[in-house]
């Protein structure tokens, strides 16, 4: 019987990594379905341009976009690297700042009564509105873009971290207290793992914001990056190249979100949101 044999190899690590592998493969097979849909979408686009006689300075064909952007590939790739760098650095710094702050607010009454209401009211401010100010303060370099990315990633991470660390099930809270465990032990054995699923909600939300923040920051004041590129080529009546930039931004966003999703699968394979996907 399977259950009898599995009890013999009682090594949680092997069964865990085997399970993670299965999740990853499951993810791949699902992305083939996506791919089929996208290919269909581009075929319809390609045919429609001729069918309805749309001029190419309004909306170019995908094939034309591909050919024209190939000619400008060097610049596009370099700008992808720049925008990606801004997004990823800002995102990572946002996590490093926001998670400890979320923890502090969750576990400190004083913080909850002072800093927390302040952040909640700031949540209503569109963070991107600060972008022109940062550009004027810090100039055209990477730094103001990274700060803007931090700004748009920070809030979803903080707010979800606070929620995560304050919503341990009541019975678990009581169970922990009944063991007499100290705060550190209780944190690492119960509070932290229990909080991870809600933390990842924030991480994923922020991953979406990261590329948006980087792009808009480049719109406002920049001399490189995909946001800068899209603005310039659109001004030059080159929608084909603008689409190439948009396509690369999409890939960038997908890659960042995909990496975070993979990390989530590895970190919380036991969670219902992860298990339900396979």
């Amino acid at each position: 019987m399977a259950t009898a044999s599995s009890s013999l190899d009682r090594d949680p690590e092997t069964s865990r990594s085997r399970r993670s592998l299965r999740f990853l493969l499951g993810g791949l097979s699902r992305s083939w379905m996506f791919l089929a849909f996208f290919v269909g979408f581009f075929i319809v686009w390609e045919i429609s341009i001729d069918l309805f006689g749309i001029p190419k300075y309004i909306l170019p064909k995908p094939s034309e976009i591909a050919v024209k952007s190939w000619a400008d590939a060097d610049r596009l790739l370099y700008y992808t690297w720049i925008t990606g760098l801004e997004a990823v650095l800002g995102y990572i710094i946002a996590i490093l700042l926001a998670v400890p702050l979320g923890l502090a607010i969750a576990f400190s009454r004083v913080m909850r009564q002072t800093v927390y209401p302040f952040f909640v009211s700031l949540e209503m401010t569109p963070k991107i509105a600060f972008a022109p100010l940062f550009i004027s303060w810090l100039g055209f370099g990477l730094l103001p873009k990274i700060i803007i990315v931090i700004l748009v990633c920070f809030f979803p991470i903080v707010l979800n971290a606070i929620l995560a660390f304050t919503s341990l099930a009541e019975e678990l809270e009581r169970f922990v207290r009944s063991t007499g465990a100290g705060p550190t032990r209780a944190f690492f054995k119960v509070r932290l793992p229990a909080a991870l699923p809600q933390c990842f909600v924030g991480f994923k939300y922020a991953a979406i914001n990261a590329t948006v923040g980087a792009t808009i920051a480049e719109f406002i004041g920049s001399d490189e990056g995909l946001g800068f590129y899209i603005q310039i080529v659109t001004g030059n009546m080159r929608p084909d190249l603008a689409f190439a930039g948009i396509f690369l931004l999409t890939l960038l966003g997908l890659a960042l979100f995909g990496i975070v999703s993979v990390v989530e699968r590895l970190a919380i394979p036991w969670h219902i949101s992860v298990r339900r996907k396979t």
Binding site: A169, E171, L172, V190, P193, I268, I272
Partner: peptide, 15 residues
């Protein structure tokens, strides 16, 4: 802390 408690909702953790 030196007693055994079974709570109404079980305290098994999913991870």
């Amino acid at each position: 802390t030196d007693i055994g408690i079974m709570f109404q909702d079980n305290t098994l953790v999913p991870w």
